[in-house]
């Protein structure tokens, strides 16, 4: 990611009031994670799998602080169980920011499943999402996701693809 895109993500998170970010690092967001770690206004929590991160974000919601789960889109599959239980069972929302691995243009065979499954899994969980491939739309997309999740008390997602992450 370009520094300007990293800065746009952090501006979006701050505009939404996020102070805690849970992440499991990936390669497309490689430049984002150290920037989050270095930001004095954001506490980062490194997790062992994205489902654990989703549950931690749910706990942060209950505290009144705002959290984000940042990950590769493969992490969505690892998060399905806690997302379904928290979102559909209790109305505890998690906002996710994920890299769009496996979309057209992908040249790694192992990433193809991520592209094929991401949008159907989001649809199966009835999670609204926005795919952003233009840097100038990142900040607004993140802020919009929080507005929606704090009106619906349900999960939402922003997937960054295209030239934003490549």
């Amino acid at each position: 990611m370009k520094k300007s895109a990293v800065d746009a993500v952090i501006r979006g998170l701050k505009r939404a009031g996020v102070s805690i970010v849970c992440y499991l690092p990936d390669s497309l967001f490689k430049e984002l994670y150290p920037a989050l770690d270095a930001d004095p206004d954001i506490r980062t929590i490194r997790v062992t799998n994205e489902g654990e991160g989703a549950a931690i974000c749910g706990g942060v919601f209950l505290s009144g602080k705002r959290a984000a789960l940042v990950m590769e889109n493969s992490g969505l599959r690892a998060s399905v169980e806690p997302l379904a239980r928290m979102g559909l069972g209790a109305g505890i929302p998690v906002v996710m920011l994920m890299s769009y691995r496996g979309e057209l243009g992908e040249n790694n065979w192992w990433a193809i499943p991520h592209g094929i499954t991401m949008e159907p899994v989001l649809d199966a969980l009835r999670i609204p999402y926005r795919v952003v491939r233009e840097e100038e739309k990142i900040e607004r997309a993140i802020a919009d996701a929080y507005s929606w999740s704090y009106a619906s008390y349900y999960h939402s997602a922003v997937a960054l693809g295209g030239e934003v992450v490549r």
């Binding site: 805690i20 942060v60 806690p82």
Partner: peptide
């Protein structure tokens, strides 16, 4: 007390709450 029905989520949620408060 938050009564949850989530195998594997309880301590992570509690930690998230602890981080926020």
């Amino acid at each position: 007390s938050l009564f949850q029905q989530q195998l594997g989520c309880v301590t992570p949620q509690a930690f998230g709450l602890a981080a926020g408060l």
